[in-house]
């Protein structure tokens, strides 16, 4: 063994992690499964005499993906609370990269795959159950009956799957970094810091635009300012939009930048970690 990255060592670390924390992962898995079943059960009961609501199911999907994912990620370094375990972790003969890879594999790959798997399974199963047990009211005409058929949500194209997965990667990376940075209440602290910096960035962004442009303006944009209105709301004098190519570039640069900076920071946090 040497001081360079070794995949074998990383796999050994991963195996060690599973063996030592396997039971708590199993517990989390069962809890997640239970919550999903429970919420779906409630949904079915609530929609006995109406359609199986896709909107609510999407909400459950998003909450499970993002809230569950960030909670899981921010608990990854929970053992930092114990000095003995921290010492053992830091002094285990493996490189920082290998140690970080365990966190990456668990928070970025494992959770996502398992969550998508169980969610699809439950959604499908529950649609089946709904179709089996909930009768379509008699007064519904034949042409509209298919609205009352529960269909797995991934079959509908209204779900913003790509955006959600990108959001998942970014939020869980932030949660992972938070878990490395805060020993106690990592989730809450990270969330507060995230909200504060989010608001701060929006505020600064708008402030800067106002300073740059002498007229009254109102910025607008989904993920970043891609257009702004000039003049008051009642009498706008014009709308300025970002050129198409810029918008395109920013929309892939921004998430990649956020994501990679999270992981680079995590790497150095771990490398420089002291107790």
């Amino acid at each position: 063994m040497n001081n360079h990255f070794s995949l074998i060592r990383a796999l050994l670390l991963l195996r060690k992690n599973f063996k030592e924390s396997g039971s708590s992962y199993l517990l989390m898995f069962l809890a997640g499964l239970g919550i999903l079943f429970l919420s779906y059960g409630l949904l079915i009961v609530a929609s006995f005499h109406s359609m199986f609501p896709t909107g609510d199911r999407k909400m459950i999907f998003v909450i499970g993906l993002l809230l569950g994912g960030t909670l899981f990620s921010s608990s990854h370094y929970g053992f930092f609370k114990s000095e003995a375990k921290t010492i053992q972790f830091l002094l285990l003969p493996a490189t920082t990269g290998e140690k970080l890879l365990v966190g990456f594999a668990l928070t970025q790959i494992m959770y996502l795959i398992i969550y998508l798997g169980i969610f699809t399974g439950i959604d499908w199963l529950m649609c089946l159950t709904y179709n089996e047990f909930v009768a379509i009211p008699n007064w519904i005409i034949e042409q509209e009956k298919h609205y009352y058929q529960g269909k797995p949500i991934f079959q509908s194209d209204t779900i913003l799957f790509k955006e959600l997965v990108i959001l998942y990667f970014i939020t869980t990376s932030i949660a992972h970094l938070g878990s490395l940075s805060f020993i106690r209440n990592a989730y809450v602290k990270t969330a507060i810091l995230f909200v504060i910096s989010f608001i701060g960035i929006i505020y600064l962004n708008n402030k800067m635009l106002v300073m740059l442009i002498p007229e009254e303006i109102m910025p607008h944009g989904k993920y970043f300012t891609d257009s702004f209105r000039i003049g008051p709301l009642q009498q706008p004098t014009g709308i300025v939009t970002l050129p198409e190519s810029w918008q395109l570039r920013i929309s892939w640069f921004l998430p990649i930048f956020l994501y990679s900076s999270c992981w680079i920071m995590s790497y150095y946090k771990l490398k420089e970690k002291q107790i």
Binding site: E83, A84, L91
Partner: peptide, 15 residues
């Protein structure tokens, strides 16, 4: 904290 250093060191903490 390189692996070749760490595998020569064993630390037994108090707790």
């Amino acid at each position: 904290r390189e692996p070749d250093f760490l595998n020569q060191v064993f630390f037994i903490p108090e707790e």
